[in-house]
């Protein structure tokens, strides 16, 4: 009975989905705000990667909000699992092969993450991806070394400083220019590492913030006693 009602509801939803998307042909060029961004990004922001320019510059305020949501989710998870943390983890670690390999891979994974967020305005990638890759590297260490620990104080400091950098850069733009996150540094030549004004600074801050927050989420989940 429950399943029949569910399938009926889904049929209605699917019917309307198909009705909408039949009027939206796949792979057709559409005129919209995307056209403006594609034509003016290099001129206005100096970044080669248009997606980065949209995330950090055109919709930078939105990104500040998203980073805040991420922070609230990480803090909320800590609050939900509060009082269940403990050190009652099995101390038996992984085998020697896994340990050695992850010890060798860990610096490279972190380096890859740093590369991805430093080059966010030139190549695919940026703060969100780089932070996630760094969290993956820390996860590797968590899985192979049972006594591997990250300091919660350090994570909080990194998170707060990165958030503060983002807000401060935005406020300096407001003070020197006209709007929040206004660019106040020289744009440089596109496709250089040091170019695009404030975009690399903000994306590096976002990278540190996302990396610290996702590491904190993993740590909170792993340290919960059953």
């Amino acid at each position: 009975m429950r399943k029949a009602i569910a399938i009926l509801l889904l049929a209605i939803v699917g019917y309307y989905f198909i009705n909408v998307f039949i009027h939206m042909p796949f792979g057709e060029k559409r005129e919209g705000v995307g056209k403006y961004y594609l034509e003016n990004t290099v001129k206005e922001t100096g970044a080669a990667n248009v997606v980065t320019a949209i995330v950090v510059s055109y919709r930078g305020f939105d990104t500040l909000g998203e980073v805040t949501v991420l922070f609230l989710a990480a803090t909320g998870l800590g609050a939900i699992l509060f009082g269940k943390r403990g050190e009652k983890r099995r101390l038996q670690g992984a085998s020697v092969i896994v340990k050695t390999t992850s010890m060798m891979l860990y610096p490279m994974v972190v380096l890859l993450g740093a590369y991805v967020f430093v080059h966010g305005h030139l190549t695919p990638g940026g703060g969100f991806q780089g932070g996630a890759i760094i969290a993956t590297g820390v996860l590797l260490m968590f899985m192979s070394y049972r006594h591997f620990n990250v300091s919660h104080n350090a994570l909080t400091w990194i998170e707060s400083l990165a958030g503060l950098t983002f807000a401060t850069v935005g406020l300096i733009g407001l003070a020197l220019g006209t709007t929040f996150l206004q660019n106040f540094l020289p744009l440089g030549t596109p496709n250089d590492l040091v170019s695009a004004g404030i975009i690399p600074i903000i994306y590096i801050a976002v990278g540190f913030k996302v990396g610290a927050e996702l590491t904190g989420v993993l740590d909170n989940m792993l340290k919960t006693i059953r």
Binding site: T52, T136, V217
Partner: peptide, 20 residues
């Protein structure tokens, strides 16, 4: 850009959170 994000988050982090 999105492929990189999905590869790092969807494959590694999301799965491990479910496993935990």
């Amino acid at each position: 850009d999105v492929a990189l994000t999905e590869a790092a988050i969807g494959v590694a982090l999301s799965t491990i959170i479910f496993v935990i």
